[in-house]
Design a binder for these strands. Structure first.
Length: 590
RNA sequence: GAACCCGUAGCUCAACUGGAUAGAGUGUUGGCCUCCGAAGCCAAAGGUUGCGGGUUCGACUCCCGCCGGGUUCACCA
């Protein structure tokens, strides 16, 4: 039983005795006491007062008196303000809590988390970075709580859009390769995707100039006709088309691999749409037979979701080729068959809210009970000051470029501060990497994932204040203290068993450490890494404040010195743990 | 047109899911390195939580109506 549970059950037993109210420790409104009042925990008593038919003040007083007299080892004193009962714990409770071993939750449900899900015709950009970091972090958080987690990626490697870059390369590429051009493979293929779009626009403008309407021009597009023909050839396994496809995708994967490696992103399993869409088509067939789907005159396959408040949705084109959702159906089935996860979490931007609603409905209508476990983790998009990023219009912040800039900034700052004495070249570049990526990752993860966020490339990302480097700095600083403290044999041998009184800053720090498990649980429940970011930020602040006021090795009382050393060590451990949950590395020196 | 999401200090974000006087960072102003690491610490200033109603002991939070922004409703993915 942890501290908060202990407090809840103490209050609960007192309430039962005093007012014979129903027993429910988890339903009690217990929160941290606001810092302008004296106390560690606060019980909000309005609801209890109502049940007891007494005034909130009187109820608070009675409960407070009962608690301090019945549990003197836990509660030291209390005060009542309006309907709030503020409880002050005995300092020894905090010390015990600090030194207690962490506990685990037992066997928990299995999660599959899908994230990243790139297209093979676009290099990774800022939006993908947010996606990757969220997916990675949510997975780590679930694991930390004891859930088995399978991290998967779904590569969008087929479809009309892929044919676009293939066609463009065929027509205008002159045999260009990553080697011949010196370009990263994903960038090279992305270049041809953009070229296609430009050529298509040119063609459309020419057609419209001959007097066609926009709609007619789109219908008559020779380029789009060629693309559709290529997709048909691809689905028919035409060797030449398949060869080109495999070759160009290979370039892209090499490019992605280096970006993932630098970001520290890994997967347990990678799915390719090209390998799952056929299963999707099979299920479409099944749905037709069971009359869940129906066919239009042109042979296209649909589902009518108007009863669910949604529209009709196409599942297969008239020419028999499959659409986006077809492969998602197949992929979900495949994953269920292979791993039987209790929950399938899709980390996908909120612009696809509708798509996932539809997907879940379809699977449910097809009688897949496990569709209940589908959860769309819908995160907000990243905005630039100029508006939305559009890869086809070139208004994107490229992932590789951004990482490079952050690392360069870290280097510049570190050199300015002149803290690289005694480091060799390898140590220095690894430090810049740690700091630059730390700043970037923390920046992306500290905000509520569900909200859209603004990224201003000009103001870039800070290294002071509520930032990754601030927390990394706190860790490095503790490391420095501990290295020196370890040299002090006297401190190492001292005991701190007789400490009963805590300094305010010590107590604050221990209290913050004690909140870790609650934060972790909340972060897992909400799929919200920002809660971990806030927790670790508060922890770093508490430590810095403590550090400023409480001498550690310079403390004359050896027992106190030892205690503060242990407190520092626990703090450093927790910082490292939390940053790990965010995918952020920690430097020993900076 | 319909559905969903969002509007909080100049800026970027919090607010324990209905609790106390709405908090941080940044920026601005001032203080702290003969003292374990100043990427730090301490302080000041900064708010009618988009607007108007309602629900109750209590509303940034829930309900209704406006205003502003975004996304989706494609045989694009």
């Amino acid at each position: 039983m942890n501290l908060i549970q202990q407090i809840r059950s103490s209050i609960d037993s007192v309430l039962t005795d005093l007012y014979q109210v129903e027993s429910n420790p988890d339903g009690l409104l217990v929160s941290d006491t606001k810092k302008e009042h004296e106390g560690d925990f606060t019980l909000t008593v309005f609801a209890i007062a109502k049940a007891a038919r007494k005034s909130p003040e009187q109820t608070g007083q009675e409960v407070g008196e009962a608690l301090t007299s019945r549990f003197p080892a836990l509660f030291n004193r209390f005060n009542v303000i309006k309907g709030f009962l503020n409880l002050v714990l005995v300092d020894g409770v905090w010390i015990t809590n600090l030194l207690a071993a962490p506990y685990s939750e037992g066997v928990l449900s299995t999660f599959m988390v899908e994230y990243s899900s790139p297209n093979t015709n676009k290099p990774l950009h800022l939006g993908h970075i947010r996606n990757n970091l969220l997916g990675h972090s949510v997975s780590e958080i679930l694991k930390a709580l004891g859930h088995p987690v399978i991290k998967v990626n779904l590569v969008n490697d087929r479809g009309v859009h892929i044919c676009k870059s293939m066609l463009a390369w065929q027509r205008w590429g002159n045999g260009e390769t990553p080697v011949s051009s010196g370009m990263k493979g994903d960038k090279l293929v992305g270049k041809y995707y953009v070229i296609f779009d430009k050529e298509l626009k040119k063609e459309q403008a020419e057609l419209i100039a001959t007097g066609l309407s926009e709609e007619e021009a789109a219908k008559q597009s020779a380029l789009m006709t060629a693309v559709r023909a290529m997709l048909l050839q691809w689905e028919a396994a035409d060797p030449a088309v398949k060869e080109l496809w495999a070759r160009m995708n290979g370039w892209v994967y090499d490019g992605f691999a280096s970006t993932y490696a630098r970001l520290g992103i890994r997967f347990d399993k990678i799915y390719y749409e090209s390998e799952t869409y056929l299963l999707g088509k099979k299920i479409v067939e099944e749905g037709l037979q069971s009359k869940v789907f129906y066919q239009e005159a042109d042979q296209s396959v649909w589902i009518d979701l108007s009863a669910e408040g949604l529209d009709k949705k196409v599942l297969q084109r008239g020419d028999g080729t499959s659409v986006y959702i077809t492969q998602d159906i197949g992929t979900a089935q495949l994953r269920h068959d292979e791993f039987h996860p209790d929950q399938m979490v899709y980390v996908v931007a909120n612009e696809q809210d509708y798509h996932f609603k539809v997907l879940k409905h379809i699977l449910t209508k097809l009688g897949r009970k496990w569709a209940d476990g589908l959860y769309h983790f819908s995160y907000g998009m990243v905005d630039l000051p100029t508006g939305k990023m559009k890869s086809r219009e070139g208004t994107v912040v490229d992932a590789d470029d951004l990482i490079e800039e952050m690392v360069a900034e870290a280097e510049k700052l570190t050199l300015e501060l002149g803290k690289t004495q005694g480091m060799d070249q390898e140590e220095m570049s690894s430090l810049y990497e740690t700091l630059g990526l730390g700043a970037l990752k923390y920046f992306m993860l500290k905000v509520d994932p569900r909200k859209r966020m603004l990224f201003d490339p000009k103001e870039s990302i800070d290294f002071n204040g509520n930032t990754g480097p601030f927390i990394q700095y706190t860790y490095a600083r503790i490391g420095s203290v501990l290295r020196k403290a370890n040299a002090e044999e006297a401190i190492a041998r001292a005991s701190y068993a007789n400490i009963t009184q805590l300094h305010d800053k010590e107590r604050e720090l221990i209290k913050q450490l004690a909140r870790y498990h609650e934060s972790l649980k909340a972060a897992a429940k909400d799929f919200n890494p920002a809660l971990i970011a806030h927790f670790v930020y508060e922890l770093a602040k508490s430590y810095n404040s403590f550090y400023h006021e409480c001498p550690i090795m310079k403390e004359d009382d050896k027992e106190k010195a030892k205690f503060r050393t242990v407190l520092s060590e626990k703090t450093a451990d927790k910082i490292q743990q939390c940053l790990h949950l965010l995918g952020i590395a920690v430097p020993e020196r900076m």
